[in-house]
Nucleic acid binder design. Sequence first.
RNA 1: GCGAAAGUGGCGGAAUUGGUAGACGCGCUAGGUUCAGGACCUAGUGGCCGCAAGGCCGUGGGGGUUCGAGUCCCCCCUUUCGCACCA
Length: 826
Amino acid sequence: MTGYDHQRIEAKWQESWARRRLAEVEPRGPSSPFYMLMMFPYPSGDRLHVGHGRNYILGDALYRYRRMNGDHILNPMGWDAFGLPAENAAIARGVHPRDWTLDNIRVMKQQFRRWGILYDWSREIASCHPGYYRWNQWLFLRLLEKGLAYKKQAPVNWCPSCQTVLANEQVVEGACERCGTSVRQRELEQWFLRITDYAEELLAGLDELEGWPERVRLMQRNWIGRSEGAELDFELPEIGETLTVFTTRPDTVHGATFMVLAPEHPLTARLIADHPERAAIEEWIEQVRNTPRIEREEEGLVKEGRDTGRTAVNPATGERIPVWLANYVLVEYGTGAIMAVPAHDARDLDFARQHGLGVRLVYHPEDREVDAATITEPVLHEGVVRNAPPFDGLRDGQEAVRRFTEWAAEQGWGRARVTYRLRDWLISRQRYWGTPIPVLYCDGCGVVPVPDDQLPVELPYDVELTGREGNPLARSAAFVEAECPACGGPGRRETDTMDTFVDSSWYYLRYLSPRDESRMFDSELANRWAPVDQYIGGIEHAILHLLYARFVCKALADLGLVSFREPFTNLFNQGMITHFSENSGRVEKMSKSKGNTVSPDALIESMGADTERVYTLFLGPPEEEVEWNDEAVAGAWRFLNRVWRCHEALPDAPPTGSADRQLERLRHETIQRVTGDLDRFKFNTSVAALMELTNGLTRALDGRTVSRSACEQAFDTLITLLHPFAPHLTEELWERRGYDGSLLEASWPVYDEEKLRRSRMTVVVQIDGKLRDRLELDAEADRGEIERAALASDKVRQHIGDRRVSRAVVVPGRLINLVTEQGAGG
RNA sequence: GCGAAAGUGGCGGAAUUGGUAGACGCGCUAGGUUCAGGACCUAGUGGCCGCAAGGCCGUGGGGGUUCGAGUCCCCCCUUUCGCACCA
């Protein structure tokens, strides 16, 4: 592309910035520490396209702006380096996960440099480094001490042919993605973190997080899924047990006509022990168990059930009701069993009709009594209780729930109870590329934590990765065999590694003292800089990562390591960039797999990184999804070239000019707009304002209407304001203007209210709300003068005709609306 | 099904508290400039009627509040996103 020599300029300034040490920046203003953070990126080379550049460019623009504004600001970058893709790449290509990861980090750093993105690399961390992950292990041990880490049986996806555990994403239509074998569910002992202990606080804390997008808070609320209800006890006389269920509708207990247990429920075995078709039922249970989780949670799963032949006693009516097993009841939620009330629950009614089970109504529509045998839809709202003697006449609602719960409690078979959908955090991964969980197993001592002074438990480099036969760590004798720290006898190391969300749940604290070998992080620094003022990242982390990070923050606070309980004060989620995809013929999210990416290299070569940055930010509102338009990029390129040409034209500006005040006002307006817009993340309108200033300056220079000094002042303001968007070009122009030092050290311009004032104003004249004329008046004109001027206008008089003006509404500085009698009446 | 957000020119999108709808950019049209260009400059560009002046209509659809509604309220339609046998 013909234009200014962007390649030479960009290379020159990238080199200059690389020599800087951002850590040494001192605050110029009286600002308090501002801690800005991008989400911990996964260093996969695949993400290098303009779609992914968006959040880094956005973060860099914000960083440069806040810095120029005089903020004491921290902007670190590091790598969420563990994870499954590295292990897959290793298996597919025979590269070691560590080498693959480090290579990708190198490529990504290079790309950041080409985008002109500044990070404080002295704080760089990588979670796969033992100096980082030893603190995952240390944290785990503290949680273990507090009872927040524990082990229990949990199902995993198991490929019988590969003899290995599969992640959900490795299961394709119920089969192993590698060999196509049907995936089975298998129970394994696994490590969990007790996030549910914090469910209530995690939920309540959301109300205080006003700097977070409402949709993220809502997603977290739904994920935690608090529900109030009651626990009710049902006797199982044949086996002499009590079955406890959770229900949000204890007020419908009289309508419970059967019970349903999850097939995995602990009482199942005893219930079917003497069943004549026990073998068949057990086979069916096995089949349900083996249905992969994802499928079982999918919509449209066929509801299947089996009668245990046993009965329970409905504590409200004393009736004997059948006990069933069904695949739609989940063992993880509530107590893993429900009382089925077909009259008032659609799912239960479905199941009752399917298996010929009884229906009993508690609530009836207000105006009539309905027959249980004939209803086809459950009675859900606005009902009135009948057939539940102590409560007849009571209305459906919270009051009813409360009264029934109290009643059940008085009789000793029920109690109020809150349940959450949130489950404990399973951190065990049967994988190589992760943080080893720091415990050993000893025949004599059982589970033994690794003592702190023996950390880190290092991940061995020398392992064989095949993707088969379980965790490669388990086959490494050098790793597994270790001395028991308690008794000195032979022990076996835990071979499970941690979920990478553990790494990312506290990394923001490690940035503050990244090389400290004596502790996880420096609490004093943490309390000074954190919580993070501004967190930037994609919406895809709205639930898991952000919830885990909040949980770990609270746990760290309870360990006395930090004095705050929420890690991120303000959260910004940038939207994805979409692009037309040749493959599908549709506009889709930009990604390698869809083949609709735009290479930053080609773009940077033809029009430069500054053009890519400006266009990316100009594209649309940053929080929304926006479509990349290959043709429109040229608009940003033209804009930057106009700026360049303004600089070339400056020497030709005349010594004095008639329109100096006008340009000066535009200059101040632009400062006001850009500053306000950047504070509100409105990068797109900031760029528009800068284009307007450029157009104004171009016109002034062409028309020779503005003095050279005023033009120069406007130009200097322009490149200063433009710097966060187009850093290379503006640095070059700043130098060519003869200023010393980087624009990064220049102060952000301040506007002057006085200079924004106009001597004339445009007043719009409406008649009955319709625009009829515009008047140029003195800015000082008062109500009366505006009204007189409006009534004096020929156009206005024509439109009013012989009607009478009954009222005049004046909006100072903007408009006057004349209301005529007919207009007001009609 | 539940929840949320959003519907504005040919396109991406502007429009603090209700106060000139369409900023800025792309595209398009005409003219200029250039050896040439996918370069640059100038003017125009929501629709309809009109030679023009000007008029009428116009922010998904319908109603309402108001001197005044893209903006607020009610109903409906569409799209996108999130969640879901959650007892």
